[in-house]
Amino acid sequence: MAALLEAEGLTAGYGATAVLHGLDFAVEERGVTALLGANGAGKTTTLRAVSGMVRTGGSIRFAGERLDGLATEEIARRGVAHVPDGRGTFMELTVEENMRLGAYTRSDRAEVEADFERVFGYFPRLRQRFRQQAGTLSGGEQQMLAISRALLLRPRLLLLDEPSFGLAPLVVQEIFAIMRRIREEQGVGILLVEQNASLALDFADRAYLLETGRIVVSGPAADIRQDESVRRSYLGY
């Protein structure tokens, strides 16, 4: 069976600067793939490439269809939800409006309302903050809001850019626990970018290690987690 997402020879860059130099990676249907690497390795750029936010070369196949060359909004409409670097909160809008925007492209109203309830089940705090301006939320709450906005799109693939960034360890635990539930209950594939390698390797079933725009190690997450030398030379724990 073909993978949900498959990138071949993926290159990307900003202006004249090339950042990614030919990546091959895949996310299985309902699988979790982790993309690890130091700051500046090109993890965020890889997610942006999948979402059509940067100039790319090579091919990106999603559910049998080519994504490369499509506009970001069209990629989202095909079922790719991206929780971006920095969380992408609509600061001026309310929590409710942020969530409604997640479901903007959907016309199945009853299902959307059911999804709101499901998301409140994951993140009860968002129900309490429903009418509040989103800019007043804490970092952890904004991350929950970003994940909720993405889920409300009913995606087949979720791109998560460092969901643990800048959050207290307890909040990170909470969010990852919910993400395990989401993975089981929503039948969604996940491409997870993390600097916190041990956290990501516990969650993922496949992992790729990125160094200055090239994949240097890849394989089942469990194997990489066990590999002393990889851990010491690349992951630093």
Binding site: A71, E73, E74, A76, P84, G88, L101, G102, Y104, T105
Partner: peptide, 8 residues
């Protein structure tokens, strides 16, 4: 940017 990501 975020608007595009939700398909607008």
């Amino acid at each position: 940017v975020s608007a595009r990501l939700v398909g607008i």
